[in-house]
């Protein structure tokens, strides 16, 4: 996509599943039953379905940035976790370009990002910066790891 202030980051939708939560629970080494035990969630008044791991919700925002800027290096992402996401929901990750800053041979794209849950608004929100090369076919060199232009 063309990087200009005001341009929206295309929305990336993701359907959250309980099966995926089991994978995240293992890799995160997170035994919290709210992610794997539906009865626990209900009996503790937390909702009606399994609750997604916060880092997974954040990962969906990262994926939206990667999809929008496949040649970029993710420099930073700073978010607040505002609410829960439940199994079976389809969330939407997106944002808007706030500013473009010069960074030597590259440009720094500053984006406001949010993950929206159906009918409940943002559940994760914050700001991210990505580094883009200024010229096509110019690789982004990040501290010795040459990342090729895709």
């Amino acid at each position: 996509m063309k990087a200009e202030p005001g341009n929206r980051i295309p929305v990336l939708r993701h359907r959250v599943s309980g099966e995926a939560m089991q994978v995240w629970a293992r890799v995160l080494d997170d035994p919290n039953p709210i992610h794997v035990d539906r009865e626990f969630v209900r009996s503790h008044g937390l909702g009606d379905n399994l609750i997604n791991q916060g880092p997974a919700n954040l990962a969906y925002l990262i994926n939206a940035l990667t999809a929008a800027f496949p040649e970029a290096f993710l420099e930073s992402i700073d978010v607040r976790f505002l609410g829960n996401v439940f199994a079976g929901e389809t969330v939407e990750a997106g944002g808007v370009i706030e500013a473009i800053e010069s960074a030597g041979e590259h440009s720094r794209i500053v984006c406001a990002m949010s993950l929206e849950a159906p009918g409940r608004g943002p559940v994760v929100a914050g700001r991210a910066t990505v580094i883009l090369p200024n010229r096509k076919n110019q690789p982004v060199i990040v501290k010795g790891h040459l990342r090729e232009w895709i």
Binding site: G54, P55, L58, F73, L74, E75, S76, I77, D78, V79, R80, F81, G126, V142, K143, G144, H145, R147
Partner: peptide, 15 residues
């Protein structure tokens, strides 16, 4: 406990 916020700055990619 609940994760309230998270902020990360990358200098290199994680390999």
């Amino acid at each position: 406990p609940m994760l309230g916020s998270s902020a990360v700055e990358f200098r290199e990619p994680i390999m």
